[in-house]
């Protein structure tokens, strides 16, 4: 999608000079330092490849928010490989773990369907409160705008105080028109107007920012369904991405979030934000494993260019590189 950093997938070896890779690496520094250091210490600390090592590995995986069942599954697989004798060295063990993680992530990987198409496409961001939906919306708008696309923003968060003002600042920064109603208005009506505007102005992308809502709030989830129905009815043919914005610090509750949000609006992927902290975002592995949900974009910093397309190869490699 965002042509300037390319979606090069021809090589498995990430080029060291690639700006994108450097960026994700530096964004992941905190993540990597903890994860890779612990894994490397464990694998290459001179210990034996035995049950004790596997248990410690299980601990590391769980503390990365990968979750108990997925972690057990990963370790079980490694245990079998050890028993069969197909793993004999720490290097092989590390390689096997990498392959496993990569398999889980790349099996569900799917590029954005919106961006390179003809005509109007929509991207809607949903999620619980405070995951960074408005900020991500602003950044996506700016990136598409830089890419020469005609973007229209819809301020469908009419609930949180000053959410519209916040998006307005982003609309100004991204030089994109913003369709808004007053605070407290029906979000579906905002979306309807935004669709009309997008058609009239022949926009390429309609970007919808929605209010943060806990997935357990029935009424708010109904509101989301209504927005979905408006999109279904008005622009049934247009490619659509419905992305769950997920904070990298989120624990096992992310699975509940993904389940309940998909029941209201079918999700096409995840935006993982705030990966520049120490949180490992291991939950994306569980989400890929259990829910078959791909990560589409990741946020690795505050800057506008710190929202990046997700690449499983780079992600896993960066995790293990010292």
């Amino acid at each position: 999608m965002f042509g300037f950093w390319g979606t090069k997938k021809e090589t498995n070896e990430p080029p060291a000079q690639n700006g994108w890779f450097q960026k994700i690496k530096s964004g992941l520094t905190a993540t990597r330092n903890l994860f890779s250091k612990r894994v490397n210490d464990l694998f290459f600390g001179g210990g034996k490849l035995d049950e004790e090592m596997l248990e410690k590995l299980e601990e590391i995986l769980i503390t990365s928010d990968i979750g108990v069942s997925t972690s057990l599954k990963l370790v079980d697989h490694l245990r079998q490989l050890l028993k069969k004798g197909s793993i004999n060295t720490p290097e092989q063990l590390q390689e096997a773990l990498k392959t496993e993680l990569l398999d889980i992530l790349s099996q569900v990987a799917k590029p954005m369907s919106v961006g390179d198409h003809q005509g109007l496409g929509t991207i809607m961001l949903v999620g619980v409160n405070g995951t960074g939906k408005t900020t991500a919306t602003g950044k996506i708008a700016k990136l598409f705008h830089q890419d020469g696309k005609k973007v229209i923003l819809a301020a469908a968060d009419t609930f949180r105080a000053a959410a519209i003002d916040q998006l307005e600042v982003w609309a100004y920064r991204a030089e994109c028109p913003l369709i808004k109603h007053a605070h407290g208005a029906d979000p579906a009506a905002v979306v309807f107007d935004a669709i009309t505007a997008s058609k009239a102005r022949q926009a390429d992308i309609l970007l919808i920012d929605t209010a943060g809502r806990l997935h357990t709030k029935i009424n708010l989830m109904e509101e989301l369904k209504k927005i979905g129905r408006v999109l279904d009815r008005e622009i049934p043919e247009a490619p659509r991405e419905t992305l769950l914005v997920l904070d990298a610090t989120t624990g096992q509750n992310a699975i509940q979030q993904a389940k309940l949000f998909s029941e209201s609006v079918p999700l096409s992927g995840i935006i993982l934000t705030k990966l520049d902290g120490t949180a490992k975002g291991g939950i994306i592995i569980t989400l890929a494993d259990e829910m078959k949900l791909p990560v589409k974009l990741i946020g690795v910093g505050e800057g506008i260019d710190d929202l990046r397309e997700f690449n499983p190869d780079y992600f896993v490699t960066a995790l293990f590189e010292g």
């Binding site: 509750n253 120490t278 949180a279 291991g282």
Partner: peptide, 29 residues
Amino acid sequence: MIGQDAVNVAKQFHESIGTTGLILSKLDG
């Protein structure tokens, strides 16, 4: 909804600015 990283976050905040208490948000989920 925070996960395993809660430990790092709380520890760092406590060590740098001496937090005296915790407010838990979004418990209605």
